[in-house]
């Protein structure tokens, strides 16, 4: 009960700040419109208002404050406008409609999941190699780290162009960009996890004259699962970011990335914000599902 109160307090503070921020962000537009509608505003001309401070304009025209939360094309949309748009483009639109966020979400989600699967598989394979081979540890790990220092936004167009030139297009380029972001946390977590059994545990297997293979399946792999799940949560969120970034440079027609791009072309801030929120909700949902899976599996393992 107490924690619920704390959560609600934080939430209401954020929403309160957001509404407050809408006023100075949108005040000039609101005043322009009021002036065109024949109302008396202070100062009277757009030119005079242009260099005035937002706070000053608010103080002089307090009667328009409430209107800054319902501007048609706001600089910063109010929370209820974003919610309205989210509701309208998910529940009230048919899934087949190009304006449905569910439709766009599903496009991004499929690239995210495919990328996540590729990234996780690759990450685990690399980690197994790194743990078992000193040469791989020294030769692969530095490149894995270097790969993450390159901004994905710079790399994504190149990946798409290169893949397009060899005839690969559609979901795969996006998935590869998603995989590029998601394999790294899996490698790092899995290497740590596979190395987590202590000397005593390894000695014990040695006294049984166990093979490396048996040591892997019976000790290292089960020991690594808690680490793997922590990594998977990071990886799936990174994978979603990768899929969205992958949708930007192609001017893709579908997906959250396409919605963001279209929104910024046409100054549709409400559309941008609602796409952002939809992406955040999707990421939260994916992480939550992984969390459930983690609890279920680790509980069955008694860890």
């Amino acid at each position: 009960m107490k924690s619920l109160l704390a959560v609600l307090t934080v939430l209401s503070v954020i929403i309160g700040l957001w509404y407050a921020a809408c006023v100075p962000m949108n005040i000039k537009g609101v005043l322009d419109q009021a002036e065109r509608g024949g109302e008396v505003v202070e100062p009277a001309t757009p030119k005079a208002r242009r260099d005035a401070s937002a706070i000053g304009l608010i103080v002089k025209n307090t009667f328009v404050i409430s209107r800054s939360w319902s501007v048609e094309r706001p600089r910063l949309p109010a929370p209820h406008q974003v919610l309205d748009e989210l509701w309208g483009t998910t529940v009230e639109k048919k899934i087949t409609s190009k304006r449905s966020l569910i439709y766009h979400g599903q496009v991004t989600l499929s690239a995210t999941l495919l990328g996540f699967a590729i990234g996780t598989g690759l990450g685990i394979l690399l980690a197994v190699g790194i743990v078992h081979s000193k040469v791989m540890d020294m030769s692969v790990m530095p490149w894995a780290i270097v790969s993450q220092t390159i901004p994905i936004i710079a790399l994504a167009p190149m990946i798409i162009v290169v893949l397009y030139s060899i005839g690969v297009q559609g979901i795969l380029p996006k998935a590869i960009i998603a995989a590029y972001l998601s394999f790294f946390p899996v490698v790092v977590g899995m290497v740590k996890g596979l190395r987590s059994p202590d000397g005593m545990q390894l000695d014990l297997l040695r006294t049984y004259h166990a093979s490396t293979n048996q040591g892997f399946w019976k000790l290292r792999l089960p020991s690594s699962l808690p680490y793997l799940f922590a990594s998977l949560k990071i990886a799936i969120a990174a994978s979603l970011v990768g899929a969205i970034v992958g949708e930007l440079p192609t001017g893709a027609v579908a997906g959250f990335g396409a919605r963001l791009l279209a929104g910024s072309y046409y100054g549709q801030t409400v559309q941008i914000w609602s796409a952002l929120f939809a992406a955040a909700i999707l990421a939260a949902l994916l992480v939550f599902i992984l969390g459930l899976l983690e609890r279920l599996i680790l509980k069955r393992m008694g860890v």
């Binding site: 005593m200 545990q201 014990l204 006294t207 004259h209 089960p222 393992m301 008694g302 860890v303």
Partner: peptide, 19 residues
């Protein structure tokens, strides 16, 4: 050791928590 001539007990039980 290869012939599994001995059983070894360590100071810590070292049981696998998942088994």
């Amino acid at each position: 050791r290869r012939n599994r001539a001995y059983g070894y007990v360590f100071q810590a039980a070292g049981l696998y928590p998942w088994r």
